[in-house]
């Protein structure tokens, strides 16, 4: 059992026993050793199932919706960014959320791992050792460099230690230098406009409009999404039609601008492997450049729309 898991359990137990919070949201072991699932502990006993390791990829902020009582969230940097964003947008009161920060050096991309290991292979356990991920299988141990099997967004993470937190379990780790140089966008940047259009045509044609991306996203909390509306019908409903898919994915990227925590949940959830993080990161770069805004990186943060105001405007067009 890892050190971090022990600490998370102990702290969660303490929080529930003292009555400081009514609920702790964390992770527990999933259906396989390389998966986790969200875990909701409302009694001290239930904290025994909590874990925290390289498999805990889910952004738990998605489970925080207008809590009436105090909840604690075992939050990675991206979870914390999302929490601050949704708090800022009236989806929770700051006083009702205890951000129990945990450092994170990247979380496992299960698909990528299996591909790397060669499927099928029986995995018994996964653990981190230094910069490596060690996979114990029926045919012995395999060691892989962490960067090769974590989610792509983890390799350019700017919040490996939660920027905003109420406490921190474990030692802080510095942000990745790649966070601000956007190497992930290099390929898209190098394309001509026609190539980019063609690239997205290929990618977005695959979309089946299952909205797994939306469901996984803590920032998608509208009672009714624009894409589901009939009056007006912004995008044709149902998948398989490129233009309707384009409208959905572009509209989604627009709506997440300045609100995305770069957790990668949307892309991780996409069953047809659309590189959604490219759009999200593209918009993060744009909002950072134009408005000096990065979602959820500070407690005092204003909403992006507030930065458009006359009193805040720095660049004046025209």
């Amino acid at each position: 059992m890892s050190d971090l898991t022990d600490k998370v359990r102990a702290r969660a137990k303490e929080l529930l026993e003292s009555g400081e919070v009514k609920l702790v949201i964390g992770h527990a072991r999933g259906t396989t050793p390389y998966r986790s699932r969200p875990h909701f502990a409302s009694t001290p006993e239930q904290t025994a199932d909590l874990i925290h390791d390289v498999t805990c990829a889910t952004n738990l902020a998605v489970y925080v919706s207008k809590p009436k009582e105090k909840v604690a969230v075992i939050a990675k940097g991206c979870d914390a960014r999302s929490l601050i964003t949704i708090i800022n947008e009236g989806q929770a009161e700051r006083g009702n959320v205890v951000i129990v920060g945990v450092p994170c050096e990247g979380k496992l991309d299960e698909g990528g791992l299996l591909e790397r290991l060669g499927f099928p292979r029986q995995v018994k356990a996964v653990r981190e050792e230094g910069e490596e991920v060690v996979v114990e299988g029926t045919e012995g141990e395999v060691r892989v460099a962490r960067d090769e099997v974590v989610m792509p967004n983890c390799t350019y993470c700017r919040a490996r230690t939660p920027a905003v937190r109420d406490e921190l379990i474990g030692d802080p780790v510095p942000a990745r230098e790649e966070a601000d140089s956007y190497p992930d966008l290099a390929e898209l940047d190098a394309m001509t406009e026609a190539e980019r259009a063609a690239f997205w045509h290929e990618q977005l044609s695959k979309c089946i409009r299952c909205y797994a991306c939306r469901n996984a996203c803590p920032s998608c909390f509208c009672p009714e999404c624009f894409v589901d509306e009939y009056h007006p019908q912004w995008a044709l409903h149902g998948g398989g039609q490129f233009r309707g898919n384009w409208m959905w994915n572009i509209g989604r990227a627009q709506h997440l601008a300045g609100r995305c925590s770069a957790c990668g949940s949307c892309q991780r959830g996409c069953p047809v492997d659309i590189p959604l993080m490219l759009l999200n990161r593209w918009m993060e770069r744009a909002t950072n450049e134009a408005f000096d805004h990065l979602a959820g990186m500070s407690e005092e943060q204003k909403q992006l729309a507030a930065l458009f105001r006359k009193a805040e405007a720095k660049v004046e067009h025209g």
């Binding site: 980019r196 259009a197 572009i250 759009l279 593209w282 918009m283 744009a286 458009f308 006359k310 405007a313």
Partner: peptide, 29 residues
């Protein structure tokens, strides 16, 4: 800017259109 009939509706527009321009570029338009 500064002449908006509603004082600063054009600032709201300016902010949003900054995002639109970026996203259209990403989309290859």
């Amino acid at each position: 800017l500064g002449d908006c009939h509603y004082s600063e509706g054009n600032y709201a527009c300016q902010g949003r259109m900054t995002l639109v321009k970026a996203l259209l570029k990403a989309a290859g338009i």
